[in-house]
Amino acid sequence: MPRALLLAASTLRARCSRDTVMGDERSVSIAKRPRARKRRYYAMGPDYSVGSRPGYWLEDKSILPPYEVFRLPASTGRAPFVFDKSVGSLPYDLEPYYRWWLISDRTKAVLERLDPEAFVFVPCDVRVPHGSYRGPHYWLCDVVRVLDALDESQSCLTIRIENDARSLDFGKKVYMAMPGSKLVFTEAEIGKAHIFRMAHSEADVICDQDLKDACKSAGLKRIRFRDASKL
């Protein structure tokens, strides 16, 4: 075979060999590509293990909706609070107040940035017994998004029909997530939401890893996160 043909054949073999190797590398790369990270969820709420007697209260409770109205309406007027540290501890970043949360300005900033459509915020007018209040602004906050996203077949919890005629849930399905429960959620039902209340157990607020991380990065205090997969 002429020398030129030999050189051409050698070059072609080298190129094919290189292409094969590159193809193999691509195959290996695709095979080793990690799967999408599964979202983690947490039961979120006030940390009841810290704090003492509260030194804050709402002066005019008439602004709150009647007991039958579980959600806090956006039309609620400004909430007049008294903060008195001689009575008890002043609020931190997230405190329980009736069915809702009393939150600081910086908590509101985190929640609004992550998932603004999930909340209703009612501004608080704060006064102190002596002098003028010079602390951060506070808000009553309600998580108003409710999702029926629990995968009952994969979860471990008590599911029953409420049989107490005095209950607002009489005749309805009720979830009871106790210590030792396992909650698994359907991603398709959650979509891009970062926080929601559970249908059939609206007292339970669930958030994802992104919201938990944002709260911790902001240094927010007195918020508890419990892994929903092992309560």
Score class of each variant (00 low, 15 high):
21 V>E: 13
33 R>H: 03
7 L>M: 08
9 A>E: 02
15 R>M: 14
11 T>L: 09
34 P>I: 01
36 A>M: 10
7 L>S: 06
24 D>C: 15
5 L>S: 02
9 A>F: 04
10 S>H: 04
33 R>T: 03
35 R>V: 03
19 D>E: 13
13 R>N: 09
15 R>E: 14
13 R>I: 10
26 R>I: 12
12 L>T: 08
20 T>E: 14
29 S>W: 13
26 R>Y: 11
32 K>N: 12
27 S>Y: 09
15 R>H: 15
17 S>P: 00
6 L>R: 15
3 R>M: 08
36 A>I: 13
9 A>P: 00
8 A>V: 01
34 P>H: 01
13 R>A: 13
19 D>N: 10
17 S>L: 13
9 A>G: 01
3 R>V: 11
18 R>E: 05
29 S>I: 11
18 R>H: 08
24 D>K: 12
31 A>N: 05
5 L>C: 02
28 V>G: 01
18 R>Q: 10
16 C>M: 14
35 R>M: 02
8 A>G: 03
16 C>G: 08
31 A>W: 08
27 S>M: 09
29 S>A: 15
28 V>I: 11
30 I>Q: 00
11 T>S: 06
25 E>C: 11
32 K>E: 10
10 S>W: 04
36 A>N: 12
10 S>G: 15
8 A>P: 00
18 R>V: 06
14 A>T: 09
25 E>V: 07
36 A>S: 11
25 E>T: 08
19 D>V: 11
32 K>L: 14
6 L>H: 10
5 L>I: 00
5 L>G: 00
25 E>G: 03
33 R>S: 03
35 R>F: 01
22 M>A: 13
17 S>T: 10
20 T>R: 13
36 A>V: 14
7 L>A: 12
15 R>D: 12
3 R>C: 05
12 L>E: 04
30 I>H: 00
31 A>P: 01
8 A>S: 02
13 R>E: 06
17 S>E: 07
4 A>L: 09
19 D>Q: 12
33 R>W: 02
30 I>E: 02
8 A>I: 03
28 V>Y: 06
23 G>N: 06
16 C>V: 15
9 A>W: 03
14 A>R: 04
10 S>L: 09
34 P>Q: 03
33 R>Y: 02
26 R>L: 15
9 A>V: 05
24 D>V: 14
36 A>T: 12
6 L>G: 11
11 T>I: 07
28 V>C: 05
34 P>V: 01
23 G>P: 00
7 L>D: 04
31 A>D: 07
8 A>M: 04
34 P>M: 03
21 V>D: 12
16 C>E: 15
19 D>L: 15
